[in-house]
């Protein structure tokens, strides 16, 4: 186990380094000057700006300087707003993280419950109802759900009930966090519930469930102790990639609900040719995802003792 984690860590570092290298050279291939404003800039001023940020040096030198600074924890300063990349991420990531965690918890719990319900009450109204919700989540992107929730629950509901339950924008109160988390988590909820339903049905047909029934165990005990425990495995597998989906989808939801999260920097930094911020955000997200996947793999062996991580390597 320790050996497995050690090896995976080395691979992770290599992955992140490769990601950084590719991003660094690709972003410098983009046309455009990070200091251009749409109005001509004095050449001497431009030269001074390029010298200040080291953009006058050959690209390979810039890369070495960047890597060396990054190893010392210095990710540079955003060209656009002058703040350090570290402080930008430190300020904005907590919002995205909280939104992501809330969305993830909501999606997993609600998704599991819906999936279990659908499987247990198979071919009833409960089943088709749950799967209809799942279908909605798969087919409607988060910005549609977000816009609809905001319009109906944020703007129109108060007219009906006479007071405001959900604020339209912001991230200050508990109530303001519900709609964004719901909008962001909805597609993951669908994935989880559909997978859980299939997995549950599969397990419920196993011989050991029949044995349990024959032994006279209660329905409740069979479902929660035997079926769910075994059916949950595939869910853990998809959670890693779902974290990625939620992180990358956050930009749209943050934008709709006016949440000062990190998502926008992903997009605006590229539009602005803000090289340091592009490299910083990519590196941060990359590292985050690599670690998330590692954690999922480790979780796997806790949930199912039959999985031997060392063997998986071979």
């Amino acid at each position: 186990m320790a050996r497995f984690i050690g090896k995976r860590l080395i691979y992770s570092v290599l992955t992140i380094f490769l990601l950084l290298t590719i991003t660094f050279f690709m972003m410098h291939l983009m046309p455009g000057n990070p200091f251009a404003t749409g109005k001509a800039i004095n050449e001497n001023v431009m030269a001074a700006l390029e010298a200040k940020y080291g953009l006058d040096k050959p690209l390979w030198q810039q890369f070495l300087i960047y890597v060396s600074n990054a190893l010392h924890g210095d990710f540079g300063v955003s060209y656009k707003n002058g703040r350090s990349v570290t402080s930008i991420i430190a300020e904005s990531f907590p919002y995205s993280a909280e939104l992501g965690i809330r969305a993830m918890i909501f999606a997993t719990i609600a998704g599991l419950l819906l999936g279990i319900l659908a499987a247990v009450k198979r071919n009833t109204v409960w089943d088709s109802g749950s799967m209809f919700i799942a279908l909605l989540g798969v087919s409607m992107p988060s910005f549609i759900i977000g816009a609809l929730l905001q319009y109906f629950l944020g703007l129109k509901l108060p007219e009906l009930i006479g007071f405001r339950l959900f604020p339209i924008t912001g991230w200050n109160t508990e109530m303001s966090k519900i709609l964004p988390a719901f909008a962001l988590g909805f597609s993951t909820l669908s994935v989880v519930s559909r997978l859980m339903r299939t997995s549950m049905l599969d397990v419920l047909n196993q011989d050991y469930i029949k044995t349990a029934k024959a032994k006279g165990l209660s329905q409740k005990k069979i479902i929660w102790k035997h079926a769910v425990r075994n059916a949950i495995m595939p869910i853990v597998t998809v959670l890693g990639p779902q974290v990625a989906a939620i992180l990358t989808g956050a930009f749209v939801v943050e934008n709709i609900f006016g949440i000062p999260g990190m998502g926008r920097f992903f997009v605006t930094s590229i539009q602005n040719n803000d090289f340091t911020l592009i490299a910083g955000t990519t590196l941060f997200y990359g590292a985050f995802l690599v670690i998330a996947n590692l954690v999922v793999d480790v979780l796997y062996c806790f949930i199912d003792p039959r999985v031997k991580l060392a063997e998986k390597e071979g």
Partner: peptide
Amino acid sequence: TPTTGAAYAGT
């Protein structure tokens, strides 16, 4: 002063 890097200085 050019080293300040003021974009409108030229204007």
